[in-house]
């Protein structure tokens, strides 16, 4: 009975040998639909100091080949802490386009 159920419900998919554990496979859970604002960096002003990288709770910032920080839109939750810590104030907030479009549509209606 149990073995039948285990087969049907694919119980063995729950972890190797049924041990509750997980291994990081570089596969991110996207959190982009959490945010209403997103940070936009003005690269002309950026001094590559790394403060946004250090203060991001969601590890969204990484550096590109030129040494400039880039925000990973998949995981950024739009907390905008990076704006508050930037010493040269080169990051600004932009409302998510999806949201503004929705609002515009509602207005038209």
């Amino acid at each position: 009975m149990l073995s039948k159920l285990i087969k049907e419900k694919n119980v063995h998919s729950a972890g190797k040998k049924g041990i509750p554990h997980a291994v990081e496979k570089q596969k991110l859970i996207e959190r982009k639909n959490w945010r209403t604002w997103k940070p936009v960096i003005d690269y002309d002003k950026c001094i590559k100091c790394g403060m946004c990288w250090l203060h991001c709770p969601d590890s969204a910032y990484a550096f590109n080949k030129k040494g400039f920080p880039e925000c990973d839109g998949r995981v950024c939750k739009g907390c905008l802490l990076c704006i508050t810590v930037c010493p040269v104030r080169c990051i600004s907030a932009e409302q998510e386009r999806g949201l503004t479009e929705k609002k515009e549509k509602e207005k038209k209606k």
Binding site: S3, G15, G18
Partner: peptide
């Protein structure tokens, strides 16, 4: 459901 699957495997073991 994940929790229940782990418990089922514990019982199985």
């Amino acid at each position: 459901l994940d929790y229940m699957k782990f418990r089922a495997q514990l019982h199985r073991a």
